[in-house]
Amino acid sequence: MNPAMTVVVLALIWAAITGTFSGLNLLLGAAIGIVAVLLLRKNLGPPRRFRQLRNAASLAALFLYELAASAVRVAIVVLTPDMKSALKPAIIAFPLSVKSDAEITLLANLITLTPGTLSVDVSEDRSLLYVHALNFGTREGLIADIAGGFEAKVREVYS
């Protein structure tokens, strides 16, 4: 999205949140949007193309499905009578193949809201993401799971 589009979208979101779509309110939203874009212009990436938007939508769909699955799985673990045997907590170092700040942030947030995993820390050279697993099976299985699922999708969105 270019900056002008961002301002328009921010103004529309502002109007939606405040609940009135009057001209004055839209102008106020646009003014706040311009301030936000000016403050953040260094962090805004290059313009998005349509294909990336479609990839982002498919990522969002996958995410909503995984979120529902993860909530159900946590609920099952919490409600098991002998919880100690259902738990095998571990912290695993996941080798990152995505490099930019935005990609790592997105991936870490996605990992936190998916079944059995929680991102804890990123190593200083940005090559490792430390992931806490609720029910640890094998190291290779967990890494392959993330690399083949979310990381591939995140890379598509930013490519």
């Binding site: 979120l67 993860s70 909530a71 609920a75 100690k84 912290i91 809201l113 929680l118 806490h132 609720l134």
Partner: peptide, 16 residues
């Protein structure tokens, strides 16, 4: 749940 990280799983996923 027994420790802070496993509790965090419950709070962040089921809570959200």
């Amino acid at each position: 749940l027994p420790d802070l990280y496993t509790r965090m799983h419950a709070a962040s996923k089921a809570g959200a």
